[in-house]
Design a binder for these strands. Structure first.
Lengths: 205, 205
DNA sequence: GTCTATAGACCGATAGAC
DNA sequence: GTCTATCGGTCTATAGAC
């Protein structure tokens, strides 16, 4: 066996990477519009335009497909976090993240997983990419939350964990979908309205 | 065929009703703890302690089982609405309903349905009991929302529909489940915290 | 000519329906 | 208790790159 030249290797790797990206994009879209249970592996293969067996060359199970999609959105979230201006206030950063999350969901690009599926949970927990991303995002947000509370722009009476979970929950808030179905507001108006209920609350100020 | 005596009919009806109540209670519990997709009809039959065929005597499909559970919680909600003191303020009533909804969810008695399943949606929409209950609850809450906004206790800048959907969404808020898993707070504390984020918002007042 | 990746048939299990 | 459909996962023959 000859050692493959760097060029050859890079080309093959590029091919693999490109295809994997296409797979993950399809999975992401299908997870967003149908959810994990309703999404079938055959469907994914058909959507990508490859055979099912080829899928299994890349990902050993349906759970791993979903996991890859989750890792992808988390990477996107991390990229967004890094793109925020360094001189912005903690509250502005937190608001920007919440807004971004809702925009992704309204754009139909937020994969939705059932929170009860245990085999899926196990796969996610075993994935270093997923867990590392989750922890890094949580740490980043956690720091901003505590800073915002210290300077009084976020309610200091709330445990930071409650604030963190409340922000995460915006990624799967059914209110966005319901308001979109109602058809009375543009996507941007919907985001503004839910941002208001989230940060200002339902009561008058 | 003899015409059945009133006593006999009432007895038979009672039996049917009792069994149906048992079925719906099992379905409700299973829907709450596993969700619609993960719940199997065999499981329901085993839980009730009857044959699967008997289930189909009562409910023609899995979707109808779920629908019956939804009608049940809606009845419970309507009963709760009627139990509220007549002299309470609109805001107090709204808060009481939100609190009740979260308590039901934390007690593991809130059936959770996938919002994307179209055959399930179709079954719900066709059910007069479900739709009537939903409309009645929405009307009741809608009246309180507008009254609360008129007297300035709820933010009048929010469309009433947004407030209504935000309240409904508390029935499936994943923050409750996450906080419960974290194990740092009692159920009552969790409800208080989420009530605070919902009505007062994340920002300081 | 060899070797890899693919396409598409195929299998076993499971769940809904009757 | 059976029947059928579907889905996750596997197997094999083949096409094409080198």
């Amino acid at each position: 066996m000859n050692a493959p030249t760097p060029v050859k290797l890079s080309f093959k790797a590029q091919m693999l990477q490109a295809r994997e990206a296409a797979i993950i994009q399809s999975v992401n879209r299908l997870l967003a519009e149908k959810g994990f249970d309703a999404m079938t592996v055959d469907e994914v293969a058909a959507d990508v335009g490859i055979a099912k067996a080829s899928l299994y060359k890349h990902f050993p199970s349906k759970e791993d497909l979903a996991c890859a999609a989750m890792v992808r959105v988390m990477r996107r979230a991390q990229d967004f976090l890094q793109s925020l201006p360094a001189d912005a206030s903690p509250l502005d950063n937190i608001r920007a993240v919440a807004r971004w999350t809702m925009q992704v969901q309204l754009a139909g690009e937020m994969p939705s997983l059932p929170s009860q599926n245990s085999s899926l949970r196990a796969t996610l927990m075993k994935s270093r990419d997923y867990m590392d991303g989750l922890i890094e995002i949580s740490d980043q947000l956690g720091g901003w939350i505590e800073a915002a509370q210290a300077q009084g722009s976020l309610n200091p009476g709330l445990p930071p964990l409650v604030v963190l979970y409340t922000l995460f929950a915006r990624a799967c808030d059914p209110v966005l979908e319901f308001l979109k179905m109602a058809g009375l507001h543009t996507d941007e108006q919907i985001v503004d309205l839910v941002m208001a209920t989230c940060f200002e609350g339902l009561r008058s100020r």
